[in-house]
């Protein structure tokens, strides 16, 4: 077992991991990172086109091992009248930076 660090966030707000998580090698750390990214997505993905969420894995010596990124691309739906029915991006009150 070794300690890996998982920085996470989006382009506006990064939480630098100062505690770390014990993992059984790099593959296990990668799996843990993906699970972390899934939780991060559930909590922080908003209807904001281009939003990118990531988890970046470092080892104990600070070397970056992997960066897992997920991004949202939305395409406007054009209805008969030619209007887009997509609302303007509306940053939620619980966005990453401002809770």
């Amino acid at each position: 077992m070794a300690r890996y660090f998982f920085d996470s966030g989006d382009r506006y707000d990064v939480m630098k991991d100062e505690i770390g998580v014990e993992c059984n090698g790099i593959e296990d750390a990668r799996r843990a990172g993906i699970e972390g990214l899934m939780d991060l997505t559930r909590e922080f993905l908003r209807d904001v086109d281009g939003q990118q969420l990531f988890v970046e894995i470092r080892d104990e010596s600070g070397d970056k091992l992997a960066k897992l990124t997920l991004s949202l691309q939305t395409q406007p739906v054009i209805k008969d009248l030619g209007r887009s029915h997509y609302a303007k991006p509306n940053p939620s009150k619980r966005n990453m930076a401002g809770r």
């Binding site: 998982f6 996470s8 939480m15 991991d17 100062e18 505690i19 770390g20 998580v21 843990a32 990172g33 699970e35 972390g36 899934m38 939780d39 991060l40 909590e43 988890v55 809770r99």
Partner: peptide
Amino acid sequence: TQSALGDALGLSAVHVNRLLQELRRD
């Protein structure tokens, strides 16, 4: 352990770790 907290909260160890640090930061 973080993993026990994760099992109680239905969250991954990495996210539990992040949340503890968010509560600390706040």
